[in-house]
Write a protein that binds this DNA or RNA. Structure first.
Lengths: 122, 122
DNA sequence: CGGTATCCACGGGGATACTG
DNA sequence: CAGTATCCCCGTGGATACCG
């Protein structure tokens, strides 16, 4: 119960344990948008209200590098580009669902605690 | 499969769906440190290599505001302060475990994809 | 011991304009 | 259509020093 904390607890997980940018502002939303099938660049920009092309490109490239999505260019005119989740990318839905479940179940408690704290500080 | 994306998909979840700073640099580690029982400020600083007192204080205060931990001051000399997870705080272990499970299972694939990408870009 | 007070660096993200 | 190219803001987190 009260043994001292291991000083090396997090020694190895610094650079590698959080290599995915799932905690950033856009990635989880992008993954969600791709759940129902391949999507085009401009198509993604619609629900992703106000994301700039630069940021969307960066996010997609990062996901591609990590093997989460594929980028396919169809040689038409004008060119069509489609982004699609890989099987690996689809495994992200599990932890994402856990996050959503937590929020669904416990967000009211969190908000209540925040309210109570605000009142106490009056 | 290819119906247009709902433009309002994320309309309501912007400010409230990610109210927890679990994705930040330190919070998940702090929660982990508190799993085995209450801990003191200085005690937490040991495994949290290089966290500054300012940042640790900010993180703890945020968790306290959200009802995840309690802060108890014992009127001794010198004063002793203990941080402890609330029942609500303990519910965070579920989504955190899902994250860890994902990393354990899929990190090698991610790393391999990254390697392959690096080679391809030569 | 358990913080606070300042100051500062960095990088994610945004705004805007332009292009093959 | 699917991006690039610049420039810029701001918030997280770090460094350092000091305090009740």
């Amino acid at each position: 119960m009260s043994e001292p904390l291991d000083p090396e607890m997090f020694a190895d997980c610094s650079p590698v344990a959080a290599p995915m940018r799932i905690g950033d502002k856009w990635t989880a939303k992008i993954i969600t948008c791709l759940e129902s099938g391949p999507r085009r660049f401009t198509e993604l920009r619609v629900p992703l209200r106000g994301i700039t092309p630069k940021v969307l490109t960066e996010s997609l490239r990062a996901l591609e590098r990590d093997g989460m999505i594929t980028r396919t260019v169809y040689p038409e005119i004008p060119a069509r580009v489609e982004y699609e989740l890989t099987p690996l990318g689809r495994t992200l839905f599990e932890p994402m669902a856990a996050q959503c479940a937590w929020t669904r179940e416990h967000l009211p408690e969190l908000l209540a605690a925040r309210q109570a704290h605000e009142s106490a500080a009056h």
